[in-house]
Amino acid sequence: MILGLTLICALINHIFLLISLGVGILSLMIFSKILKRVSTFLGLFILFAVTAIAITAFITADWRYALDYFSPFLARFFIIISAGLLFAFTTPPHNFAQSLQQMKFPTAVTFTMGISLRYIPTLAGEAESIFQSLKLRGIKFSKWEVIKNPSYFYRGIIIPLIIRTIKISDEIAIAAESRGFKCDQKRNSLHKISIGKNDVLFLSTLSLIFIIIIFLDKNLLFLSLS
């Protein structure tokens, strides 16, 4: 879906169709009940869009030019980001890693990706713990303090975090090997992910919409009014 939308965005030139596609994805987000969770990211995008348009309008002293210049770019950007967010917030990371495994991606890639996705929050937590323990010892880290004494930051946070990272990775390796994991062997899974009726229906509908949009973009002259 993300690849398809990215390619479609590159092919379509009419702003009306791009906006329609964006509204379509937004509707899918509402239907998937993830709109509230992605609102922070969409808010950041809106902030970025408004800033970019405002800066250009200020420099050129022409609001219309700024809008004309940025509209297609921002519409494409919005569609790609929304499609990615829709995927990210409706697909559990372990399912994603398992799907790649079933698509015959090398074990080195799927295993490593599984670990990366699993340990992002753990390492963020570790960094927070190290930071808190420094605070308990009376070491305060303001932005100015980090610039003035980078060695505090280096000795206090970076080194402990890397040592913790090495320990965690060793523990994972021992746990994986003790469960019979081998990098050069095929992995199997108790639960297989398969393409169901709903997936086929979704894919067919999406393909049909893509074809209609490309047809409209190439053939209908009235859209050029936009």
């Binding site: 490593t112 670990i115 990366s116 340990y119 390492l123 975090l161 890397i162 990272t165 990775s169 994972i172």
Partner: peptide, 11 residues
């Protein structure tokens, strides 16, 4: 190696 690369990517 792979587990270390995985954790390093997370970091």
């Amino acid at each position: 190696d792979l587990s270390f690369i995985g954790v390093i990517i997370a970091l």
